[in-house]
């Protein structure tokens, strides 16, 4: 792997380099939070050190909330083959890159989802390691360090960034920006890097005890606290929208007035909605909120290991600052442990 240096004074020049590769998207403030937005102004490029947790994760690029998969008339149908532009997402934290890797694994196992893969191939990820805030718990889910899935990855080491190159496109980018990327690393870089990691590890304030949670999910399956959570849950589905590894979707057909033209739409669904497991004849396999919550947490903390080898919670903390009634991975883990 190649490592280079980018001086902080050249940070804004990065935009003109990235621009040559596609649309540049960077976290932009939205209320008290952030959202990945397309930027035109080099000043909007954000590589600060603080952890920026956008409302919707990177998955919004890879599996849009609502899009057409094919269009049809009574005679024939055409697959949606729209051209996807290259998108460069800046300031993606390590946990989210892990999430993208999980999504990719999910969408290429058994059958390959082309709608996802088409977008994944056109997504350039510029990662960034920042210090955790009070909600981050990626150190507990082993997702604070990432080794693949990014094109470039930035570490903030004081007056410069240490830049890992993780892909061919990443390499192309640093070659295009040869005037700002410096191959000569300072002598103290490894020492500084170790210090940075130490400081990062010390900065975690949220420490849910995730050890053995997988087994506890099984052992505590019939515990009473699930019903308490079920009574509290608003079934708003926000947790599933915000979670970077949630993938469920629904497919429906929409017709257009008069033209006899229709579209088959694919949009995000949530396992927290009542209709999620409803089958013909109105039989609902998961009629209660508690059952649906159990499904979600089983899937996040336990079941995904059985299918894909790792749990699907990456410790990004989105569920913590999304759920209005405080049902999230740390609170569930706390109950599992009590």
């Amino acid at each position: 792997m190649r490592a280079l240096k980018l001086a902080k004074k050249d940070e804004k020049k990065l935009f003109s380099v990235l621009e040559k590769f596609g649309e540049v998207w960077s976290p932009m403030p939205k209320g008290k939070r952030f959202s990945y937005e397309k930027i035109e102004d080099p000043e909007d490029l954000v590589l600060h050190e603080e952890c920026i947790r956008t409302i919707l994760p990177v998955k919004k690029f890879l599996m849009p909330p609502d899009f057409n998969i094919l269009s049809f008339t009574p005679q024939k149908f055409t697959i949606n083959n729209e051209e996807i532009p290259f998108k460069i997402v800046v300031s993606v934290p390590a946990c989210e890159i892990h999430a993208v890797n999980i999504l990719t694994k999910f969408y290429t196992t058994d059958y390959v989802d082309n709608y996802y893969m088409k977008r994944r191939e056109k997504l350039i990820i510029i990662g960034k390691s920042g210090l955790p805030d009070e909600h981050c718990f990626c150190h507990k889910t082993n997702t604070s360090i990432v080794e693949e899935g990014y094109d470039l990855f930035f570490f903030d080491l004081g007056d410069y960034y240490l830049v890992w190159v993780g892909s061919e496109i990443g390499d192309d980018i640093v070659r295009k920006g040869s005037d700002i990327f410096d191959e000569n690393l300072p002598k103290d870089v490894s020492q500084k890097f170790v210090e940075f990691r130490k400081q990062k590890n010390k900065s975690y304030k949220n420490n849910p005890d995730m050890e053995g949670v997988t087994d506890l999910m099984e052992l505590m399956y019939d515990a009473e606290f699930w019903d308490e959570f079920g009574d509290k849950c608003l079934s708003c589905g926000q947790c599933t929208m915000a979670c970077p590894t949630c993938t469920c979707f629904n497919i429906i057909d929409d017709l257009e007035l008069n033209k006899e033209l229709g579209h088959r739409r694919r949009y995000w669904d949530s396992c927290q909605f009542k209709d999620y497991s409803l089958v013909a004849g109105q039989h609902n396999f998961r009629g209660s909120k508690a059952e649906r919550l159990k499904l979600w947490y089983t899937h996040k903390l336990k079941a995904f290991i059985g299918h894909f080898g790792s749990p699907s919670c990456v410790g990004c903390g989105r569920c913590i600052i999304t759920c209005p009634v405080d049902i999230n991975v740390p609170t569930v883990v706390e109950k599992l442990k009590s």
Binding site: Y107, D110, I251, S277, H299, A303, G306
Partner: peptide
């Protein structure tokens, strides 16, 4: 067995039971 399905190929998630997909 029978479950609700939207994709049939393990992507839409509706037929999941524990770690298994009914469709896979």
């Amino acid at each position: 067995l029978e479950r609700r399905m939207k994709c049939g190929c393990g992507k839409c998630g509706h037929c999941i039971i524990d770690y298994r997909y009914t469709c896979i």
